[in-house]
Design a protein around this nucleic acid. Structure first.
Lengths: 338, 338
DNA sequence: ATGAAAGCGCTAACAG
DNA sequence: CTGTTAGCGCTTTCAT
């Protein structure tokens, strides 16, 4: 058993039409008589026919794939971007081809090369830092390129992102305005964590601009930075700089971890230690106390990117005119700070 | 500018060899002289050649895709399964083609059909409940099928999962042994949440087996069930059945939400209310108090599935001999219960 | 509304 | 180690 799977030619033979008519019957728009189409679809179901995209892809030079690289799937923020992106693209008949860089631009280069071989219609990458070869591959691919989650100084093509630096600046001003002076920053010490290092740099700049000491920097190590790392960092902070009044964390996950460390030690948040996070994760809205954070619009980045790709592929923009869509992060004041 | 992209034939012409030699030069194993290969790869780089998988896929009838459906990417447990699966498969040269069913078996049917058109080498689905047509599509696809996260009564092919029913039974016994009597279950009320309903059924069965009242069932609504839903359910529970001693939740997320509701009301956990979760999420290991939970080995499901697919595709199993790999969930006792 | 011919870019199969 | 031939299963293009 298990014969060779049926092709359009087999259906054509069974019905007594040409393969071309069968092909047309599978496109919703094409001109095929009602009865012929029905007969074809019935025969297809009977024979257990499954349309072969690989052949269609080659002939039509169109895969309806959109390649996407993200640092990690195990991060609620990136996952949300991918979800919205995936939703938006599938509504336009496009399928995501997803790859993980593990926060490594060399891995990204390999991944980009591998994904481009599949001939996607467009490619979305996270971040604006790439190896020279990856940049070249992306530039020469002849398809729309979208860099997300950052505002690269020299974009390759389109951009859908926000300024991590400015976002943290808002947070620093929020804390400074509330009267906090001895403010620490947790995370952003690893070179390969580009968004983390930007946030830390933004912290330092904003603290100096406010005339405050910007030297309370606690390391978290390489990403992914989770709750555990936040707890460990808070323990270091409490030991090394016990007079600290507030800590701004590289993400809500580390902020929550820091919070748990305070709870275990009987340190009251925000009375003894105020906390700020980043990313507006679910947890920050429900934990006790809730976390002051920055909404970076992770979901909207995905939705906008899908829309942008749809517009570009369907020619609703001057081709070769790269768009930059900039989100403005919004501070969400909550119980973890006054 | 922007001429037609170069093909193997172009490289062949440039070097003065046949296209076949160029093709061989791109396979690591194939026999091509050292110098010829180097010349070919150099020319390819110069011309900006990108290998075209779509053509190779059609000709060799091999895509190196593995199709995967999960209910949602926004769930740390499924995300972990996908991560390990993706890692394991990419090590074997296979690329994941991921789709989301949104906890809907009709959506799953559509997705399976769409994914099969891409001619994957194998397909992995989450759960054992499918529409009749989806079952037929999967059975007839002629590729290995793996159902994960469940132990279906009538598997389509291979299975990598565990018994949700038995897992919750363990949890119930743990609580009963600790002396809790008035135990509630939160979640598992939505028909389309197959794993949730199994867990609730397991709760009822185990409670009855222990001679306890199994009627304290609090609804959470349709999945995804997050922290918020857990908090709301706990509020209901405290209002409707205030003498409840312990609550077992459909997942760690809802358990954490329930915990926060207790904290806001000054109800001590575990003294006034004990809590149990499911899934061994990061948060349960770090929140205060830490959560008693069940380790369902989400990551290992992914890793084992990758291994299984590798073995089957490389012919290390009798073909047509479906494997069932059963994980035994392990209870992790923590601070949220005595 | 339908058909015939050609070919997308690569590789299986065979030859040398 | 290298080349020749044919063709994977569709869809483009041009006819009718």
């Amino acid at each position: 058993m298990s014969r060779k799977p049926p092709t359009m030619a087999d259906i054509a033979k069974a019905i007594g039409v040409s393969p071309m008519t069968v092909s047309r019957a599978f496109k919703s728009d094409s001109s095929v008589s009602q009865e012929t189409r029905e007969a074809i679809l019935r025969a297809a179901e009977d024979l257990g026919y499954v349309f072969d995209s690989t052949a269609a892809n080659l002939r039509s030079q169109k895969t309806d794939f959109v390649a996407v690289t993200i640092p990690s799937i195990n991060n609620a923020n990136f996952a949300e971007t991918v979800r919205q992106l995936s939703d938006g693209l599938s509504r336009r008949g496009l399928q995501i081809l997803l790859g993980y860089t593990n926060y490594d631009i060399l891995e990204e280069e390999r991944l980009v090369e591998q994904l481009l071989r599949r001939k996607p219609q467009a490619i979305v990458v996270t971040g604006g830092r790439h190896t020279p070869r990856a940049r070249k591959l992306l530039s020469n691919a002849g398809i729309p390129v979208v860099e997300t989650w950052d505002l690269p100084e020299q974009p390759i093509g389109h951009v859908v992102g926000f300024s991590n630096t400015l976002a943290i600046g808002e947070m620093v001003r929020h804390f400074a305005d509330a009267g906090y002076r001895r403010i620490a920053f947790i995370g952003g010490d690893a070179d390969n964590d580009t968004r983390g290092t930007e946030r830390r740099a933004g912290f330092v700049a904003a603290m100096q601009a406010a005339g405050l000491d910007a030297s309370r920097l606690i390391a978290c190590g390489a990403p992914p930075i989770g709750m555990r790392e936040g707890a460990v960092a808070m323990a270091h902070l409490l030991q090394s700089l016990p007079d600290t009044e507030a800590a701004i964390c590289v993400s809500d996950l580390s902020a929550f971890g820091a919070l748990t460390e305070c709870q275990r030690r009987g340190i009251r948040v925000p009375q003894d230690m105020a906390l700020g996070g980043f990313g507006n994760y679910d947890i920050g809205a429900i934990c006790v106390p809730t976390l002051t954070t920055i909404n970076a619009f992770a979901g909207d980045i995905g939705a906008k990117t899908a829309e942008l790709i749809g517009d570009v592929l369907e020619g609703r923009f001057e081709p070769g005119l790269p768009q930059t869509i900039r989100f403005t992060p919004v501070l969400i004041g909550r119980e973890s700070s006054r």
